[in-house]
């Protein structure tokens, strides 16, 4: 193969790639999108259609989650046919942080996630006025407001934070042991 010999040619300047990044950085500096990399590849986006597909995709995800956990997250009830047994725990038995996260029925998708943020009241604890905790479910609309700002670290709020698990609300007992082997998809 004649072509392959290209890559084997003796070269004095093979170091070319070494400084590419630096040179590119130098050339373009920190101005964004002045160079040719700023471009629209496939024409205008159909925003309405995009919104429809977005809602449909979220709905699909929600249904998948319902099936997987045997729990109807919309009506907030365990499904009848489920691999799990769900036991309700009184709200006052779960840490404060999780209480108003309960998703009520009859609310629309967007509202539900938006209102899921916890707002404890009258507990004598100092809470940030607008919750900036990373664990709190937060709709994109909400995030868009203070997007890209690193949340300020707040000390001494007196709350231990941890990842919210579904088992924080319900104890899960696995009834059926068989589970499909999880793969990347």
């Amino acid at each position: 193969m004649k072509d392959l010999s290209w890559t084997r040619l003796p070269s004095t300047d093979n170091c070319g790639t070494m400084d590419t990044r630096k040179r590119i950085g130098h050339r373009i500096g920190h101005r964004i999108g002045k160079g040719p990399a700023r471009r629209n590849l496939f024409g205008p986006v159909d925003r309405e259609q995009l919104q429809v597909e977005y809602q449909a995709a979220l709905q699909e995800d929600l249904e998948e989650a319902c099936q997987r956990w045997g729990f109807d997250f919309i009506s907030d009830k365990p499904l009848e046919r489920s691999d799990f047994q769900w036991h309700a725990i009184p709200a006052n038995k779960v840490p404060l942080l999780y209480r108003s996260c309960m998703l009520g029925p009859g609310r629309t998708e967007g509202q539900r996630t938006a209102e899921a943020a916890v707002k404890p009241k009258g507990q004598g604890r100092v809470e940030p006025p607008q919750s900036d905790k990373e664990n709190i479910p937060c709709s994109p609309e909400r995030c868009a407001l203070n997007m890209e700002k690193t949340p300020e670290r707040r000390e001494n709020t007196g709350l231990k934070r941890k990842q919210t698990n579904i088992t924080d609300f319900y104890q899960a007992k696995r009834r059926v042991v068989w589970m499909p082997l999880k793969s990347g998809e």
Binding site: I32, G33, A37, R38, R39, N40, L41, G43, P44, V45, R47, L50, Y54, P140, E141, A144, M147
Partner: peptide
């Protein structure tokens, strides 16, 4: 970089 063909919200 998308030449503003998409919005941050999207």
């Amino acid at each position: 970089y998308t030449d503003n063909s998409i919005r941050p919200q999207e």
